[in-house]
Simulated assay, not measured.
Amino acid sequence: MRGQNRSDRQYELERSFLERAKSLLHVCYGKIEFISEQTDRPDAAFLTTEGRLVGIEIVEVDDESLREYFGRMREVQPALFEQLDRIEKGEELNSRPLKKKRVEQGNDCIFKKSKQKYDLYNDYMKNLEKIYEEIYDKKYELHGKEKHGIELILLAHSEFVSNEDDRFETYLCSWTNYHFSVSDCPYSKVIFTSGLTREAKIVFDKTNPNKNRPVLDKEKEKGSTMVRLNAIPADGKPYNIKDQLFNPPVPPSSKKRR
């Protein structure tokens, strides 16, 4: 059931993260059936055709102040609407982006907040045991199938870390696996989803841990700069997008468009 302290917005966000991971979950577990009533402690759960119950706990790994900064779009709406007016009138465009901020992405950027979910593991497993007993008779025993156990996985999500670039594949992925491995992560798997690619990848599997410390690369520890572009022409006219990438963002405004 949904917790009383959870907002509808938070629930919808978590469902969107979960949606991005469904294809990968089917690859890992075959045909699955989600338990629609299970939305908290843990955040989701599904059944496999073999009779296994798998719970999913979801964690957002981004810094909260970073999410708030890029989420405050009202303060840059005047600049956006002014840019749209300029495009319509064929006037010279503002070459500054709406938002721009340096995003720190050290080798523990996925692990750091995910580790806070370790202490919840035992309680959530107990909850899953109760759920399994309640649904087993209806789903499996009547069909002569045996129980195939309970599993709890972690779904870590970021809006700012890509899981398809070279840095992720050759650096961040191995470090993330290492951190979860040496910290004795209780979850059977950790799946990472990215808002930039809308793809999901396994970054830790308890059956295949990696306790060999990767080599630290100072260049790859620097992270990246995230930019939310201002409006650009859609009529095929030449426009140098690099100006927005390298310029500072528009100043925030408290003005409202009439």
Rank of each mutant, 00 (worst) to 15 (best):
P252G: 06
K218V: 08
P251H: 11
P252R: 03
S254G: 15
P248S: 08
V227L: 02
P251D: 13
P233W: 09
D243N: 15
E221H: 07
S224A: 15
Q244T: 03
K237G: 12
A231C: 08
V227Y: 00
K220S: 10
D243Q: 15
P238M: 10
N240F: 08
P249F: 05
N230M: 06
K255A: 02
K255I: 01
K256V: 06
K242D: 13
G236V: 04
L245P: 04
S224W: 03
A234I: 06
P251F: 06
N230A: 14
Q244A: 00
I232W: 01
I241K: 11
D243T: 10
K220A: 04
R257D: 01
K255Q: 03
P252F: 05
D243F: 10
D235W: 04
V250L: 12
K255V: 03
Y239I: 01
G236Y: 05
Y239K: 04
I241H: 10
I241L: 14
K218D: 02
T225I: 15
K222E: 14
K220G: 02
Q244G: 05
N240L: 14
E221Q: 12
A231E: 10
D235A: 06
K242T: 13
Y239A: 10
P248E: 13
A234E: 05
E221R: 05
E219D: 14
A234R: 12
K218P: 00
K237C: 15
S254R: 07
P233C: 00
T225G: 01
N240W: 12
L229D: 02
R228K: 13
N247C: 15
P249H: 04
L229M: 05
D235Q: 07
D243W: 06
